[in-house]
Design a protein around this nucleic acid. Structure first.
Length: 613
DNA sequence: CTAGGGTTAG
């Protein structure tokens, strides 16, 4: 009946012929054709919401407007909900403004829409509008608006909302709590996150997961793992999110035995079959230097989504397998037709920079912007600066930084500083350090690099000045530490470490190797270089650098020919880099070192970094 | 007389 009224209405107004036909076609094709009773509309829209089917809902809305029947609060609310879940936020907002009686539910769904899809600022301003309208936010409002704060890293707003949470007594709710933990985590405040976590006594898995993720996202992967242990002790069963989080934590601490344990657990409990878990494993094995395993798992994925491609591409890239990375990028576009994103390009560009593929690098850097409309971020620039720096084109690198459309971060300047060290450019090095001091005043590593630049140039006053700057600021260099995994156990060594039970054998192995190295032409570094850690040490101390101890231990405790993987918390020093090249040739082994910013594959006297790091 | 929710890999 209504439909025929509508048709009549169309004929009597100046509605176009096309629209008339359109309505006719709805009559014949749509599932709504037989339901012209107003009282059934809410349930129809409800089913649209469940199916996220925007079109029938829109048509129904249009029909209602034309019919002049008006839209009551129930129907209006449902339509706002439909628009909101289908990401038609402008429509949702318009309709929202026309509904006179707005309850908390209506506000919540609109806030949710903007919190999920952005602009996130709108979600926050809606929240404040709601409070000003005299409504009390509830246990649904808070998680939504906190999500918007997380996305914006809006700490001040977040804290204020936390106040509201406490005042309205929702602070023991797990949903609100998880929202708060995530907000604090994304703002870099792990301690506040932990406080929220500790205050909630009736926890659930998601709350545990949120806290583990908070640690993981803020560079405390070992806290993630120990919290997981606590969770198990309290009898909670892990979920997919738990596994994904702890696998990435294990990848970050390079605790491969731990990672393998988690892998086998995942397999026993049937989690490994899940693509999300498998992708986390791909990342973990890649970071631990097991690219073969990573690739096998990658090929097993049921559906390769963007994140999986990214994990595998950057896995190849970080180990310097540029061709494999680029071939995979090609496969991703042609075979899978997955759209690359900014992270894909970080992988692709770092593959180019590690492989020294200057031309390709520029090609991808331009294509990223022109063909994919991705605005370059600091990480992309870092790759390009690395490429330019590699070939000594420092002025061009500096020019590129000045042309950047976003603010250069510490990675960009650090990359330039490093290039200055390698090509002994004091002038630009000073500029880079100046910027780095502004950006991260407490990172001792930066000062050390500049000091080395001065030392290499024989500018001793410069070296002294940098050292004084460091003492004035109370900066201490972190203690160097290297790990090596032997028979599923991690062995850690500090500089000059004598605490390992097999120390004596380790040192005599080093002595034996040094003899062979000297025969092969190795000369220990004599220049008084201010090393990352061991600045004042005598030449014979170089021998006891942590990475050498770890390598020597690895050599004496594994069968000949076994590949070694050593992880170091700082950069590999110049002298050790030379020494390890000799060692790899003498013992005929592949030695992989994962230092703070890259992987070095030493094989047959050469290193994959081509002596640039 | 209802509807709506927090965590997860690169």
């Amino acid at each position: 009946m209504i439909l025929s009224m509508l048709l009549l209405h169309c004929l009597t107004t100046r509605t176009s012929r096309a629209y008339y036909n359109h309505l006719l076609s709805i009559r014949h094709s749509s599932s709504l054709s037989n339901t012209c009773c107003y009282s059934r509309y809410p349930s129809i829209i409800q089913s649209c919401i469940a199916r996220k089917a925007i079109e029938p809902g829109k048509q129904l809305h249009a029909r209602l407007l034309l019919s002049g029947l008006g839209i009551d609060a129930v129907l209006g609310t449902k339509l706002v909900n439909l628009y909101s879940v289908c990401n038609h936020l402008a429509d949702a907002y318009n309709l929202f403004d026309r509904i006179p009686q707005r309850n908390v539910f209506l506000w919540n769904i609109l806030i949710r829409g903007f919190a999920w899809e952005g602009p996130h600022e709108v979600a926050i301003s809606l929240y404040y509008r709601m409070v000003e309208a005299g409504l009390q936010p509830d246990n649904f409002t808070f998680p939504f608006v906190l999500k918007a704060c997380s996305a914006l890293s809006a700490l001040e707003v977040g804290r204020e909302i936390h106040d509201h949470v406490v005042h309205s007594r929702w602070d023991s709710d797990v949903f609100v709590g998880a929202g708060l933990i995530d907000m604090y985590a994304k703002c870099g405040c792990v301690d506040d996150a932990r406080e929220v976590f500790d205050r909630i006594t009736k926890r659930d898995v998601v709350l545990w997961n949120s806290m583990m993720a908070a640690y993981s996202q803020n560079g405390h992967p070992s806290d993630t793992l120990s919290l997981c242990h606590d969770m198990a002790t309290e009898g909670f069963a892990p979920t997919v999110a738990t596994l994904v989080t702890i696998i990435s934590a294990a990848a970050d601490v390079a605790a491969l035995p731990r990672g393998r344990e988690i892998h086998s657990y995942s397999w026993r409990r049937g989690f490994e079959a899940q693509d999300k878990v498998k992708t986390a494993l791909v990342d973990m094995y890649a970071k631990s230097g097991w690219l073969k395993v990573a690739s096998t798992l990658f090929e097993q994925l049921k559906e390769r989504r963007l994140v999986s491609w990214n994990a595998m591409i950057s896995g190849y890239a970080m180990h310097g397998h540029a061709n494999e990375a680029l071939a995979l990028f090609d496969r991703m576009k042609t075979e899978a037709q997955v759209m690359p994103d900014h992270i894909t390009f970080v992988g692709v560009l770092s593959a180019c920079s590690h492989g020294g593929l200057m031309e390709q690098g520029w090609k991808f850097f331009n294509s990223m912007q022109n063909d994919y409309s991705i605005r370059p971020m600091p990480q992309h620039y870092t790759c390009m600066i690395d490429l330019l720096g590699h070939s000594g084109r420092l002025d061009e690198a500096y020019k590129l930084i000045k042309e950047m459309t976003t603010a250069p971060d510490s990675g960009v300047w650090g990359c330039l500083l490093n290039a200055c060290k390698i090509h002994r450019n004091v002038e630009l090095g000073e500029i880079a350090l100046g910027k780095l001091i502004e950006l991260e005043p407490h990172n001792a590593g930066n000062y050390v690099i500049l000091s080395n630049i001065y030392a290499q140039a024989g500018k001793w006053q410069g070296t002294a000045r940098v050292r004084k700057l460091m003492t004035d600021r109370g900066l201490k260099k972190s203690i160097a530490c290297s790990w090596v995994e032997v028979k599923n156990k991690v062995h850690a060594f500090l500089v000059g470490d004598l605490s390992h039970p097999r120390s004596e054998e380790v040192y005599s192995e080093l002595e034996r190797l040094e003899g062979l190295m000297k025969e092969a032409g190795y000369e220990p570094e004599t220049m008084p270089v201010f090393h990352d850690v061991e600045d004042d040490e005598k030449r014979n101390m170089v021998r006891s650098h942590s990475e050498r101890l770890a390598i020597a231990f690895g050599l004496i405790s594994t069968p000949p020919g076994t590949r070694l993987l050593v992880t170091k918390n700082l950069r590999v020093c110049e002298d050790c880099h030379v020494a390890i090249k000799f060692i790899s040739k003498i013992v005929g082994r592949e030695i992989v070192i994962r230092d703070v910013n890259r992987y070095h594959h030493f094989k047959n006297g050469l290193c994959s970094c081509r002596d640039y790091w």
